[in-house]
Design a protein around this nucleic acid. Sequence first.
DNA 1: TGCGACGTTGACTACGTAGTCAACCGTCAG
DNA 2: CTGACGGTTGACTACGTAGTCAACGTCGCA
Lengths: 360, 360
Amino acid sequence: MGATQRVAMTDVARRAGVSQKTVSRVVNGEPHVTEAIRAKVQAAIEELGFRPNAAARALVTRRNQRIGMVTPSTSLYGPAQILEGVDSALRGSGYHLSVARTRGNGVADLQAAIDELVAQDIAGLVLSEPIDLGQPQLRIPHGLPVLSFGSPKAGSSTSSTTEASARPDELVLGADETAGARSAVEHLLALGHHTVHHLGGTEGWSATARRIAGWRAALSDAGVEAPPLMHGDWTPRSGYEAAVDLLRRAGVTAIFAANDHMAIGAIRAVEQAGLRVPEDVSIAGFDDAPEAEFLSTPLTTVRQDFAEVTRLAVHRLVGTIEGRPPAERHRLIPAQLIVRESTAPPPSATHRASPPERQA
Amino acid sequence: MGATQRVAMTDVARRAGVSQKTVSRVVNGEPHVTEAIRAKVQAAIEELGFRPNAAARALVTRRNQRIGMVTPSTSLYGPAQILEGVDSALRGSGYHLSVARTRGNGVADLQAAIDELVAQDIAGLVLSEPIDLGQPQLRIPHGLPVLSFGSPKAGSSTSSTTEASARPDELVLGADETAGARSAVEHLLALGHHTVHHLGGTEGWSATARRIAGWRAALSDAGVEAPPLMHGDWTPRSGYEAAVDLLRRAGVTAIFAANDHMAIGAIRAVEQAGLRVPEDVSIAGFDDAPEAEFLSTPLTTVRQDFAEVTRLAVHRLVGTIEGRPPAERHRLIPAQLIVRESTAPPPSATHRASPPERQA
DNA sequence: TGCGACGTTGACTACGTAGTCAACCGTCAG
DNA sequence: CTGACGGTTGACTACGTAGTCAACGTCGCA
């Protein structure tokens, strides 16, 4: 069982009639090796089925070609997209990807996942969802490059100026979710809704905080007091249950859900209450998940360009690892409002001034 | 940048006034160490912030605590659930998880992902989605334990007897998707539909083949000739487009989509054609994705118990790695038909004999 | 023809850990 | 009181690779 490694460079060297060091040169594609010898070594490698021992290599070079990634989930849309994007961006870079999923939403859970990765001698650390906490007392080895998708502090958005993060050398990239959320709420207000209710994501997630921040900012700009906040956990069920609660209040005409799945649950709740989307209640989501466009009521939502964000982020992380730190450590990519059929003027809007339509 | 590792066991040993070997004993929790010395070493470890060097350990023990997993995607429901389940099952086992995503659906793509993992000295290999090919000419190091979720050969299902796989020692576990698909189609036939059309998943995936097999089996048992097969790529869009095509034919009353997302697209297509689900056209999916229950038309679908499958599979894989191979190498977990509101008798069924309702 | 420069090759060694084995200690039975 | 034994500790070494540096050979130029 399992004794996978048997053939070493010395075996190849003996077979090819050269030194171990020469085999090393061939394997690593170093110059200063005669073509004839290179071919001979290659042949010996093939014959013996030699594969370099990664552990020995890591030991002697004192560095690992491994990136560790902490993710809160692999099945939620955002984290899954980030994981996929990071993997894509890493392919061909020479770095391997190690994944650790957090088991809960607390600091201890995040720390446990980080520790597991750090124990693997990673060259860089990716935090898919940095927890939203006052003082992120995370123990991360000094000098280990860190990339976070989204700042742990709910950003003031659009301002590209950086808020200080816990680690001065931390890379922070992401879509501008705050501005994206803001544009969704502004869209609803522009349609004529008096106010917009928000179904927040899981408490403690920075993404939750950013979307709440955008929601509050839009309401504040419009001079509207924010109604009580409700929290779900990103699942359709939680969106459904929160919306059922919400619909007990009078005059609810617009709901902004923190993600598309909660929006789907909310639509169901509205319909079960005998109301129609969007005629009676408008609903907007966040993510532009693939199914959003194909729901019976296609969903107005906010799209993030995960491919671009992850590509740029990984590029900068690898640069930092290899001693070429980017000049700019923080970057927000614009998010895009996608207006579909789940949002419309409120029932009595036609009796008021015609609402100015507005695109993000 | 990045010189993460500085403190070695010898440093700790000097600090604690013991030998490096004793530090090694303490770190690994070996017996035969006086409590006083153990405490002294622990203190020195804390003070110096020592962390064991994984590469050196792997080099000398000749084995890695790493499981490599190949997945075709991290955002599709099934693969994401498998990834999440494997990660959960691995937590606390002492093994780390390395992920490689295939870039395409060909053998070469799968092989490339496998090679990348093998280069990392993995102790075990997990294939989330074994490609469906006649002769899987995959190069996998001899003696490396392999776990596949679902056989690469579209199984005859229910029979728990194993079909021969490429590697005699390969572990093959999964939900009985063939039986699950069969039960969905039988459900539709029992409702009175003359036939059931199938929107298949991405060609080349074994999951696609298994669901097709179940579909064909159910039709065959009912003495119905299978209508032409259509293929999508698991996305709602592909389900939508396939259904638009399909609805050009006359007399289409029942569609079984290979996953819930394609079913969502199909529902949209039906509704856009001016027809109703389920009154005019019944639609069933596969996966029981979280949103399936909360769609405007809650979806009849098939649920796999990914948690159970992955837990069992990882348990057996780890056992195999550690020299305790399970007696049983193949196992199918039953899949469960979930009947909701997207399926009903066909439009004219009431004019015929009342259809016998049937549960799986 | 002679000399230096440069390209090629290999011997030696370090990297940090765990396995092997011997030395040492105290205890207990004879 | 002495020898044996078991528990504790450390010296030495191997693991497989890449870095360092020296030796060697060849070529071009003076």
